[in-house]
């Protein structure tokens, strides 16, 4: 097991390295950074000073080495807009995005899993058909549209929930969190629900498909032949088999929740990383963009690694393979 973990770790590092090359090429080779960095009105001396300052007069490989060196030290340079280190800007926004993504994921699991189980266990009931039709809506309605509708209904018409920003926050583990205060929680609800909608449908359909795949198996019939209660069959025999695909999808989708919270954050003016990156792209704030891209790469690779580890814990057959 240790051997296979180390092997996967090395693979992960290679993936990250490959991504650094892509990001580097994307930002430094395609398109001329000089044009972005320098005011067109600047004189020649000014131009040269800036070029030297950013090391753009160096050969490409050397620039890449500098880029890697910066990466290792978490140094992506200062934001052009805020004049502060890009990484710390992003990390400041991380808790906001993190709590939005985690809340959305929790909502998706808490709603999607039981409904999926129900629809899988009783596929012919009308309620199951309704659930499945509902999940198609969850898939096909665009996030921004649903977000706007939520604002219309719950904020504008009913005036139940606020829609702007994070509300009051409280400190925990050295960061500010909305979910710890009542006011913050009410701010969190709508955007989290908006972000959760698509994932809820996904988890629901995956769970249902899994139940329908597991139920006809002989081992379920045998479990019944032992006289086990229906509850034990569903929550132990069926659910434990579902955990493998579910953990995979939940892990991967968590990454995409963070990466694609952009839309929701923009609609609800949620001050997270998604909003920051959209602003940075508009303002061509290169260090922030690069730092964000690399964060995402590391996040996805890290999640994949964690999923792999979970696999070995969940699926006994994988464990044996690793031993061999």
């Amino acid at each position: 097991m240790a051997v296979s973990l180390i092997r996967r770790l090395i693979q992960a590092i290679f993936v990250i390295l490959a991504m650094t090359v892509i990001v580097f090429v994307g930002v430094n080779v395609i398109g001329n950074p000089v044009d972005i960095l320098i005011n067109p009105d600047a004189n020649q001396a000014e131009r040269l000073r800036v070029i030297a300052h950013y090391g753009l007069d160096q050969p490409l490989w050397k620039q890449y080495m500098l880029f890697l060196q910066g990466l290792v030290h978490g140094d992506f340079g200062n934001s052009f807009v805020y004049g502060r280190p890009a990484l710390s800007l992003i990390l400041e926004r991380l808790p906001a995005t993190l709590e939005l993504a985690i809340s959305a994921l929790l909502i998706a699991i808490v709603i999607g899993l039981p409904l999926g189980l129900y629809a899988g266990l009783y596929p012919n009931r009308i309620s199951s058909r309704l659930i499945m039709s509902g999940s198609i809506l969850g898939f096909s309605l665009p996030t921004f549209w649903v977000g706007l509708m939520l604002i219309m209904v719950f904020a504008v018409e009913l005036r139940w929930l606020p829609t702007n920003g994070r509300g009051a926050t409280a400190e925990f583990l050295g960061a500010q969190w909305s979910f710890l205060t009542r006011n913050g929680l009410s701010h969190l609800l709508l955007p989290a629900f908006n972000l959760a909608l698509f994932k809820t449908s996904l988890i629901l359909r995956l769970t249902r498909a899994g139940v329908q795949e597991v139920l006809p198996q002989d081992y379920i019939k045998f479990a019944r032949a032992k006289g086990l209660s229906e509850r034990r069959i569903v929550f132990v025999h069926v659910l434990k088999n579902l955990m493998i695909p579910l953990v995979t999808i939940i892990g991967l989708e968590f990454g995409s929740l963070i990466a694609f919270s952009v839309v929701t954050e923009s609609i609800f003016a949620w001050p997270g990383m998604g909003k920051l990156i959209i602003d940075s792209i508009n303002l061509l704030d290169r260090p922030v963009i690069v730092a964000y891209l690399m964060m995402m790469v590391i996040l996805f690779v890290g999640l994949n690694f964690i999923i792999d580890v979970c696999y070995t814990l969940l699926d006994p057959r994988v464990r044996l393979d690793a031993k061999a």
Binding site: Q217, D218, Y219, I220, K221, F222, A223, R224, A225, K226, G227, L228, S229, V236, H237, K240, N241, M243, I244, L314, D315, P316, R317
Partner: peptide, 23 residues
């Protein structure tokens, strides 16, 4: 349910399929 496993039991044809692989 009270009878199954207690007073009437069953053994299936394919032993590779009758035990739950994750338990």
């Amino acid at each position: 349910r009270r009878l199954r496993g207690k007073r009437i039991a069953m053994v299936f044809q394919d032993p590779m399929m009758t035990l739950n692989p994750v338990l």
